[in-house]
Design a protein around this nucleic acid. Sequence first.
DNA 1: GTCTATAAACTGATAGAC
DNA 2: GTCTATCAGTTTATAGAC
Lengths: 194, 194
Amino acid sequence: MDPHATETDRASTATRILDAAQAQIQRRGYNAVSYGDLADALDLTTAAVHYHFSSKADLGKALVARYRQANADARAAIQEEEETLRGQLERYVEGYVGILESGGLCLCGVLAADDETLPAPVRREVRGFFADQEDWLAEIIADADDAELAGHDAPREVAELLLATIEGAMLTTRHRGPDAYRTLLRRFIDTVAS
Amino acid sequence: MDPHATETDRASTATRILDAAQAQIQRRGYNAVSYGDLADALDLTTAAVHYHFSSKADLGKALVARYRQANADARAAIQEEEETLRGQLERYVEGYVGILESGGLCLCGVLAADDETLPAPVRREVRGFFADQEDWLAEIIADADDAELAGHDAPREVAELLLATIEGAMLTTRHRGPDAYRTLLRRFIDTVAS
DNA sequence: GTCTATAAACTGATAGAC
DNA sequence: GTCTATCAGTTTATAGAC
């Protein structure tokens, strides 16, 4: 690898296409982002984008799969490094703030709104993402010390409620900045963990 | 008016266009619904649709304004007919179930996901809708008997949290049917009203 | 109020040269 | 791996007849 290459140069074109697609879809929705938009953003032609992702279904599926994997890695790090349930939940919730700061929403929240227009493989990935979150949240809530739990007997329901709150808060507070989101989620966590 | 006209005949074309646009946008998102789609659904031409709504911004603005008004009427009826905070919240939450049953999301939830692509007048209406909900919810929570409240001192924050939960629960449970939504919201209300 | 006809731009996608 | 060139289909919108 060329040691003089810039950070941007080092990323493969396929990765740069995924980066641009993610940024634009999170801000504008799936159906408002075209091959032309991505080509323009990267100074390529639409044919070059098609070389890397032969169809939009292909691109969408690869995009959500990558998002899911990055998210799984982040969750693993949280579980390893945070000892208390409160610490884990706070870091998990904070993980979405960067998205809001760049003007977008959770990729899968946006795609869920476009659900009926998604190619089937993309829809499957989106549902898989939600299932991932609910499974993991239910697990860390169930595993928490009794002393830390605010009397919750149904980890799965609390997990689903937290995921819904995160996705909904991003939607309803996106025009007010990240602090509005933080305030809502802090209040939620207060009702779950001591 | 022709006394033999059917229910559908009686509705003006403008109203039928708004009905079709609302149904389709709630299922597919703003940018996946075209004049051609609406014309097809109503057996009209795109030119006829343009006669009633000269631009898509026009149509979108009229659509959200009507949605806001219908919602305001529903809230007024709830406030008049339900005596307890719990009764008011349960009926408010239940008001969104019909949307889920027809396969869609809250119109303004969908539009908020497409935020950056919306014509400015439409975006204003969408934010107005969210403000309407938060104002009203904060008011009924603040007005509730102390005996009924589960120790909440910040009506506004609880109102924002409820709205976020509703919008988010619709997004994350849409593929699981209305009962998944109901279960989540029941649990939320239990934490607010006795 | 609805139609036919049309425009100009954009969409996802392909063929073949370099 | 990227380009030029091109396709058929769609999108928002307008002009003018009925």
